[in-house]
Design a protein around this nucleic acid. Structure first.
Lengths: 115, 115
DNA sequence: CAGAATCCCACTCGATACTG
DNA sequence: CAGTATCGAGTGGGATTCTG
């Protein structure tokens, strides 16, 4: 948790939040997890088209380290893994929801303006 | 607006939102603007202790380009400038608010756990 | 005070190849 | 399928200096 540079000495709450979700793709991953409940690596790779496999693995690892998501490995052939939100991770729902709602509003706006 | 790499072809709303606020310090700047209504450069520089002057200027410029904040210059000596939210920028309040609320919750949590 | 310009290093991140 | 390892180009971003 000291990989980020935000100084929380003064306890700025937004900086605290950013420590967890400021990774380049984290909130998008969380968005999909809130929608699907369970996600597989390959599925996320398809959804996040512009996120490289390496980046996806890194972001997932950080989210797991931070206790936001849980990784479940099934020893089958071919290998199978899935990711779910932890109880702690689920508390982030209002944040992700607000982001998704604003994005929906904006997409609508952008569409009507282009007409 | 093509400085970010998020692909919104499929209209992922979270990615749309990130196009505007994913800059390293943007949401913190917005947080202060929602609190203070009006902010000066030097004041922000003091508040965002770990954000360099260069970064602060860059982030403010991007927010201005995106129509989220407005820059007001007063031709006095010494130079004076302030920043306010545009009408469009104000629509982001629920997002910033959700982040600040979660951060407050987390700070509380972290404090009680350290005892 | 409020920035712009320049320099330059560290690290990010994509591409590719490999593994259980 | 679900990753890890390695490498190298590109960029982020700090330090410093300069200006109106």
């Amino acid at each position: 948790m000291n990989r980020h540079i935000y100084d929380c000495q003064e306890g700025c709450p937004v900086e605290s939040t950013l420590q967890f979700i400021s990774g380049k793709w984290k909130s998008v991953i969380l968005y999909h997890l809130f929608k699907e409940q369970v996600c597989h690596f390959g599925q996320l790779k398809r959804d996040l088209k512009d996120c490289s496999q390496r980046m996806l693995a890194l972001q997932l690892a950080e989210l797991e380290q931070d206790g936001i998501i849980q990784k479940n490995i099934y020893q089958e052939i071919p290998l199978k893994t899935d990711y779910t939100l932890t109880k702690f991770g689920k508390t982030l729902e209002p944040v992700v929801l607000a982001m998704s709602q604003w994005g929906t509003y904006y997409n609508q706006l952008a569409k009507t303006e282009s007409n």
